[in-house]
Design a protein around this nucleic acid. Structure first.
Length: 409
RNA sequence: GGGGGAAUUCCAGAGCGGUCAAAUGGGGCAGACUGUAAAUCUGUUGUCACUGACUUCGGUGGUUCGAAUCCACCUUCCCCCA
């Protein structure tokens, strides 16, 4: 099966400008394509991960990837799919984020001569002169068309500033620029980027009279139509300091039944035949599929050793008995103890399991806390220093959150 | 440039000068049921020394015994006209 067909079978392709032409280019390794990453945070997240995987797949098929970091577009902010304006980032923040991105990407994609390229659009965008730019490309954009673009729809109701309105022009300019300087003939991106990407192909056609192509990746949605890779407390990050490998593993281990296969297909590199076999699984058997998904992804992002650890920890905790060595752990100090003891409420707050004592109190009263396998229902419960030494205390909050508190002397 | 309206807790959105830590919905958290799933039902959801006290309703002042509620100014946003 060729690469284009595989991408299609995995459900990764959402929209394309010219299917026949793109298939031809991609399958024969003739595409030089770029994907843009906006440095809005200091770590990549799951959405970026899909894009990185796509780059990798295409690179393996002989195509040349360009990772474009939006150091320049970061000054403007993409309004697509947002209901409010982004807060403006300072130059330092943008630079810091770009650096972080670069480091993380290097783990997935091979950069170098005749391999993947990494460029930053700050290098050309920041040099642009307003009037020159208007004269150069301004005539190629129809405001009428832009206003119709899907990416501005939501914002048309709430209000869209001129600043953000220009995002599409900047992105189009990137494509135009790289088409000429790097021979970049294709752009990939999230499906929410479709109109921005069309802006680019359109600009190239008008200015240069040549064809360039665009293809979008299906956004990973769960069965409820929400973007995946988000939790209540924010995105699922690839940076182990922001989302630990264990939490990362657990996120995928807990996806809904309806979403497992889709995730495996889209995110992992498991051969399609193997995935197709899993298609017939149902009921509790899907738990195995979830384990595979979680393991595979953790392995891709954090490496095999971390994946093993996360899996063992999870199995140990949930199947009972097993070792608790790798669960998240908070180290206590003598100062945390009042006299010789620490009470349950303080302990929960110290471990970050509860935001306040009030919350901890409720949790305990509602029977949501277990320590060392014993349910704790008394808010007065307390332990001494000695209790917390050695193996420490294993606290279980609710059904799934395990945490260890340890006093080291 | 002119006119009008809005800002409330994680979000949306009620809120009569005292009975307002503030309706309702969503989300979150927990309990029951389960398969570490979904659905459902129940409880809970400002902080603390939790029968009590304290700090909140864009900001700053003011009126009042008493202000989320009234007044002034400021800030931000939206709408209409140009």
């Amino acid at each position: 099966m060729q690469i284009y067909e595989e991408l299609k079978a995995r459900g990764l392709i959402a929209q394309v400008t010219d299917e026949a032409e793109i298939r031809e280019l991609v399958n024969n390794g003739k595409a030089t394509f770029y994907i843009g990453f906006d440095p809005t945070a200091d770590s990549l997240h799951v959405g970026h991960f899909m894009a990185l995987c796509l780059m990798k797949r295409l690179q393996m098929a002989g195509n040349r990837p360009i990772a474009l970091i939006g150091g320049g577009t970061g000054y403007i902010g993409d309004p697509s799919g947002r209901t409010d304006m982004r807060s403006m980032m300072t130059a330092e923040t943008i630079q810091h984020n770009c650096d972080c991105f670069k480091k993380q990407m290097e783990r997935f994609i091979e950069f170098g001569e005749d391999k993947a390229l990494m460029v930053n659009n700050a290098d050309w965008l920041l040099k642009l002169n307003y009037v020159d730019l208007l004269r150069e490309v301004g005539a190629c954009f129809s405001v009428n068309n832009m206003l119709r673009a899907e990416c501005y729809k939501q914002r048309m109701e709430k209000g869209l500033s001129f600043l953000e309105f220009n995002y599409m022009i900047m992105q189009s300019y990137d494509f135009y620029h790289m088409f000429q300087t790097l021979g970049c003939n294709m752009q990939f991106g999230g499906d929410d980027q479709w109109s921005n990407m069309l802006g680019g192909t359109e600009l190239i056609r008008r200015k240069l009279g040549k064809d360039a192509y665009a293809m979008t990746i299906t956004l990973l949605m769960n069965s409820e139509g929400k973007k995946m890779g988000k939790t209540a407390s924010g995105a699922v990050w690839l940076d182990p300091n922001k989302t630990s490998p264990y939490d990362f593993y657990q996120y995928w281990r807990n996806v809904g039944d309806a979403d497992v296969l889709k995730c495996i297909r889209m995110l992992t590199f498991l051969p399609l035949e193997q995935v197709d076999e899993m298609d017939s699984w149902e009921g509790a058997q899907l738990n195995t599929a979830k384990e595979i998904l979680a393991y595979e992804l953790t392995k891709l992002v954090h490496g095999e050793a971390e994946a093993e650890k996360a899996q063992e920890t999870a199995r140990g905790l949930f199947a009972g008995g097993g070792d608790a060595a790798n669960m998240p752990c908070t180290k206590l100090s003598r100062a945390d103890f009042e006299g010789d003891s620490i009470d349950i409420l303080t302990l929960l707050v110290k471990c970050g399991l509860c935001a306040s004592k009030g919350e901890a109190r409720r949790l305990v009263q509602q029977g949501g806390v277990t320590v060392d396998g014993q349910k704790v229902g008394d808010i007065e419960a307390a332990w001494s220093c000695k209790d917390c030494c050695g193996e420490g205390k294993v606290i279980k909050k609710g059904k799934k959150v395990y945490h260890k508190a340890l006093l080291e002397e």
